[in-house]
Amino acid sequence: MKPQRKKRLIAVLATVMGVSIAAVLLMYAVGENANYFYSPSDIYAGKAQPGKTIKVGGLVVPGTVKRGENLLDVEFVIKDKSHQLTVLFSDVLPDLFKEGQGIVATGKLIDNERFVATSVLAKHDENYMPPEVKRALEQSGHPVKTDTATEY
């Protein structure tokens, strides 16, 4: 093999190796840092691990929004058709947070009934239902209205 060719071959091989290693590492990093979504039923069934950052979603049960002593601590219950989950949060709720509305919260489970949220997301379009919540509701047999504001 000519030295010129050999040099080029080494360069190509090195590039391919580098790219593959980087791709594998990237895949790993993405997988490690991805937050999986669970419905209250999933959590009841013990599918989610406490202590890991996950997302939960459901409809806010009317009448369950309670303020703690600190006044910034807030607590509410979300549900799908069959199960409920208590969400603890100590921050300002989003502008569009409303009882009866679908929300998605990110945070960690304490046990199978309580979830500490670091962020609560309600969409800026009030007719809008987060797709995860919609699907979770559908899977648990809850009727879902898609085009109008949902009232429960």
Binding site: A29, V30, E32, N33, A34, N35, K55, T106, R135
Partner: peptide, 19 residues
Amino acid sequence: LFPIIMEAFDKSVSVGAPY
């Protein structure tokens, strides 16, 4: 794209700022 790919496996995932 990771969430879209996982969506195909019927898993709902989000990748956030930490990654």
